[in-house]
Design a protein around this nucleic acid. Structure first.
Length: 272
DNA sequence: ACTGGATCCTGACTGC
DNA sequence: TGCAGTCAGGATCCAG
């Protein structure tokens, strides 16, 4: 589920209930996520300590304590909610961070592709974070950077912009949408894009991500919704999931192909 | 060093 | 209604 906007919206949604509050207890029901949760390490370093800050790096949420930082990655199906004390856990509610305020931060992840990691004192030096690419919403993400990174490579542009070592946070949906908006065919080799094309593509990615964050921001209250998942986004998608429907620009049917084992939607008339 | 394919897991959906 | 098959918004690991 979560690409960068959903992670950012989660961060903003839980922040008021988490930052400045002490974690009194950690409850672990399912230690087997993508990697086994380091239970003892987490217990020792988390319990009794206050969350000083929450930040985001790519799709990782970083919780800073005086003892170090732990990270949560939501994988494909994970989500966090803030719930009242004594709320009964439901299926796939794997971890509770109990706060001395009485609230619970709870992780649910049906597919268990998510992760909870202890990163210690230097979180960005962790093997899983140290090689991450630029943040798409910063100035560093521009045409010149992309040209440099694509030089000499034979990867198709869609896989290139989904590579977290190039740029973080762009998942399958936003990759499809951004390429459509830029009239670039997903199977083009990244090394063949021109400076103006990279310029437009990077700008469109920024715009899409920002818009999705803004939209998600209107449903923040849902992070303390006991019944279901957070509402995230009511996003309007132009091509993702629209196989055989008319292209919103030229009315040709939208195509779907597997690219890098991911469904890839495009208009082969508009996108060259 | 790069690239593509297999892989972890459960749930939702489709078609018979 | 049941059952098998397919697919899912991530990203690492491994072989070539």
């Amino acid at each position: 589920m979560p690409e960068l906007p959903e992670v950012e919206v989660t961060k903003r949604g839980i922040e008021p209930f988490v930052t400045g509050y002490k974690i009194s207890q950690l409850i672990l029901r399912q230690p087997k996520l993508r990697w086994p949760i380091p239970e003892k390490l987490l217990m020792r370093n988390i319990q009794g300590n206050t969350v000083e800050n929450i930040t985001r790096r790519g799709k990782y949420l970083l919780f800073e304590l005086s003892t170090g930082t732990f990270a949560v990655h939501l994988g494909m199906s994970g989500y966090l909610r803030v719930l009242p004390e004594y709320t009964k856990p439901q299926k796939h509610d794997h971890i509770d961070w109990m706060f001395s305020s009485g609230r619970i931060l709870r992780l649910n992840d049906a597919r268990r592709f998510g992760a909870v990691l202890w990163l210690g004192q230097d979180p960005l030096a962790h093997p899983l974070l140290k090689d991450l690419g630029v943040e798409p919403l910063t100035k560093a993400f521009d045409a010149e950077y992309l040209i440099q990174k694509a030089k000499g490579r034979s990867i198709v542009v869609k896989n290139f912009i989904m590579d977290q070592k190039i740029v973080v946070g762009v998942g399958n949906i936003y990759a499809n949408e951004a390429l459509f908006q830029t009239n670039i065919h997903p199977l083009r080799l990244a090394s063949t894009l021109t400076q103006p094309e990279w310029q437009q593509l990077s700008q469109n990615i920024k715009r899409l991500l920002k818009k999705a964050i803004t939209r998600g921001g209107t449903t923040l209250k849902d992070f303390s919704n006991v019944d279901g998942k957070p509402g995230y986004f009511s996003q309007q998608l132009l091509v993702y999931g629209k196989e055989d429907t008319p292209c919103p620009v030229c009315a040709a049917p939208i195509q779907c192909e597997r690219v890098g084992q991911r469904s890839t939607f495009f208009c082969d008339h508009c996108q060259q």
